[in-house]
Design a protein around this nucleic acid. Structure first.
Lengths: 173, 173
DNA sequence: CTACCACGGTTCGGTGAATGAACTAACATC
DNA sequence: GATGTTAGTTCATTCACCGAACCGTGGTAG
C-alpha cells in the first residue's frame, strides 16, 4: 500500500481491515481464491499481475491468516493457497462491493450471477436467498456468467472455467 | 492506485469498483463522509493524510459520482463534499468490511457500535435490524463508541464528535 | 547422461505515486 | 497593515509497482 503500509493513528476497524486487504491486487487475489484458484501460476495468468507482486501479496495474506499455504505434492514440491475460515468470511464484503460495482458501474447488466446452489435462487447483495430466507455462505454459492460479460477473450484456465456455471471454492485446474 | 490505476483486462465488477475505491485512503474518506465529515480541513485533520493526496482523492470521488461538491458559502468561496445516493449505497460493503475487521483483527472488542436509530437495536454485519426485521440504510444508523476503542487521544473535531453517540451523515463541524 | 521444460519463485533497473514541508491565494478579523 | 483561516498547489524525496530476465528444483524425452 504505497509507503506507510499502515494507517497509524486510525483506531478503526475499517482501517485495520484495509491494512490487510487495501493494497493493489489483494482483494482480487482473494476473489480468485473464492472462485477456487489455488496455484501461483493460475493467479498470475488470470490477473496479469507481476510475479513479484503476486508473491508478496500471497505471503502477506498467509501472514494475516486469510490464506493458508499447504503442500499438495512432494516431488517436485508444490504448494497451493487456500482460504482459511477467516478468508471465507470475506465473502460478504467482497460480494457487497462487487454488487455495488454491478449496480453503479456496469453498463450492460451483471457480469456474474450468484445463485444458491441448493435451490437455484439468485442471491441479493447481502448474500441472502429469498427462497430459503437466510444468508448463504460462500460454500453454497454457484457463479454463472451474466449478460454483462463482454470482451471476455481471455484464454487462461480460470476465465475458461467461469464461462460455465461453477461452484465457488471448487478447485480450478 | 500506484501506477496503472486500472485493472485492464479484468472484466469484473469487483475490479471496476476497486478502480474507484481501491486506492490508498479512498475508502477511509468515504467512511468519514458517512460519519458526516464534509470539509477539506476536517478530513485532513482526522485522517492525517497529505493534503495533496486528499485533494486528488476528493476530486476522483466527485468525478466517479460518489461525492458531490457543493458551494455552501460565497465569501470566501467554500465548498463541501457530501455523499451522493451512489456513495450512500457503499454503506453495506463498508460496514461488512469494518465488521470483518472487528471480528478478526480487534483484540478488545468492537471499536464502534452501530444501532438502528428508530429502535436502538444493534445492527448485524448485513446492516439488518433484528427488531424491525429489515436492512437499515445509512440514514437510520447511529454510531456509538465501543469497548475496543483505545488510545483514542486524538483531539480533532471528528474524533471528539464520535466519542458520544452520533447519527450517521449528521454534519460534523 | 544430457538437454529441455514446467513451475514457482527472486532480482533488478526504470517509472510513477505517496509523503511532508513549504508556498499560494482569497478573504475576514483585529 | 498584520495576522489568521481555509483550501488548496508545488516540490524534492522516498518508496511501491512494473516488466523482463534470471534462478533452482525436479520431471521427462532422446
Amino acid at each position: 500500500m504505497a509507503l506507510g503500509k499502515n494507517y497509524d493513528g486510525q483506531d478503526c476497524s475499517l482501517a485495520k481491515a484495509l491494512e490487510v486487504l487495501g493494497e493493489r491486487w489483494t482483494l482480487l487475489v482473494v476473489r480468485d481464491a473464492m472462485y477456487g484458484v489455488r496455484r501461483f501460476g493460475d493467479f498470475q495468468a488470470h490477473l496479469d499481475i507481476p510475479r513479484a507482486v503476486l508473491s508478496q501479496r500471497l505471503a502477506a495474506l498467509v501472514t494475516a491468516g486469510v490464506l493458508e499455504r499447504r503442500r499438495y505434492q512432494d516431488a517436485p514440491p508444490r504448494d497451493e493457497y487456500v482460504l482459511t475460515p477467516m478468508g471465507r468470511e470475506l465473502w460478504l464484503p467482497v460480494l457487497a462491493l462487487a454488487q455495488w460495482g454491478e449496480r453503479n458501474l456496469a453498463a450492460h447488466g451483471p457480469r456474474r450471477l450468484y445463485h444458491h446452489v441448493a435451490c437455484g435462487t439468485p442471491l441479493d447483495r447481502q448474500s441472502a436467498c429469498a427462497t430459503c430466507g437466510r444468508s448463504v455462505p460462500l460454500e453454497e454459492v454457484e457463479v454463472r456468467p451474466g449478460p454483462g460479460l463482454r470482451h471476455d477473450t481471455r484464454e487462461d484456465l480460470v476465465s475458461l472455467a467461469l464461462r460455465t456455471p461453477h461452484r465457488m471454492l471448487d478447485p480450478i485446474s
